[in-house]
Amino acid sequence: MIEIKDIHKSFGDNYVLKGISGKFEAGMNNLIIGGSGSGKTTLLKCMVGLHEPDEGYVLYDGRDFTRLTKDERIDIRKEIGMLFQNSALFDSMTVQENVMFALNMFTKQSKEEKLERVNFCLNRVNLEGKNDLYPSELSGGMKKRVGIARAISMQPKYLFVDEPNSGLDPLTSIVIDELIDEITNEYNITTVVVTHDMNSVMGIGENILFLAEGKKEWEGSNKEIAHTDNQRVNDFVFASKFAQAAKEKL
């Protein structure tokens, strides 16, 4: 479980996060949603240590990540997997080298063991046999899947996903969402997904945190979000005519 307590973050005069708290349970898809500029990605980056919060705590199963030094954080970092918005695959490495990278850096496994793990992860994301391709030879959806394979290669306890569906067609988006959902349940991972994709919200949003202007505006599940009275949430979730029509049928 990950717990955040009263997270504040500003960049100069720009006050982005204004005291956000929440709990993200293990084995559950925890979604952070909100409009552009609401602070979703900044919150995610504060949680993984890419930004230092001005105030507040991030607790990984009770371990206070924010108070640890850079070196002390390494043990927790080894338990973290992350899928970036643009996949962030290493351009100079093949798919296999990307997935094997953390294994090479942090384990003393034999080459055969590492290769077995890589093939397992690639099979898990339906990319078997693509080991020798370079990121430039992959489609957007395949890059995301390689990103997921890389993120799970070290069997993480915590998985962070930043905008998994950006730039993908609706069908591929569903495939990625289902994959995240399956992996979360299969390995009992604490998954935190930042998204503004409504298909993801309705499809895999077991615990949803809605941010507006740097504050937590609403929290609930995908079943509750359709019936909430919160005007801001309604305006955001049912912004399109398609979503409004779907709501009327609910």
Binding site: D75, K78, F84, A102
Partner: peptide, 17 residues
């Protein structure tokens, strides 16, 4: 610089490297 703007450096840091 390209690794920085495409978040590859962030990916390294997240891994604890």
């Amino acid at each position: 610089g390209t690794m920085r703007v495409t978040e590859q450096i962030d990916a390294l840091e997240i891994m604890g490297i």
